[in-house]
């Protein structure tokens, strides 16, 4: 079960990372690229905000994991 969790967290982690890139702005379009006559609306401020938001979300997940760890690690692991 623990090893399965290890694999799944890697898979989901990579998905979250990839999805966040869409917010940060390089997927599918890079900065200033044009598609169908529309310029990519993301700018540096949005990219910075997206990158910071990702870090804060990951900090929250790590904090939840820490408190779960405090409660459970002796029991379940």
């Amino acid at each position: 079960m623990m090893l399965f969790a290890l694999g799944v967290s890697g898979f989901v982690g990579s998905l979250i990372g990839w999805a966040s890139l869409a917010i940060v702005g390089d997927v599918p379009l890079g900065r200033g690229e044009v598609s169908d006559g529309v310029e990519n609306p993301w700018n540096d401020d949005v990219r910075k905000a997206g990158g910071a938001a990702l870090n804060f979300i990951l900090a929250f997940i790590a904090m939840v994991a820490y408190f779960l760890n405090l409660k459970m690690v002796k029991v379940v692991c």
Binding site: M1, M2, A5, L6, V12, S14, L54, A62, A65, V73
Partner: peptide, 14 residues
Amino acid sequence: GYILVFLALLPGFA
């Protein structure tokens, strides 16, 4: 335990 390991590893893997 699954949720604990999942959450603890997810940020690093991301």
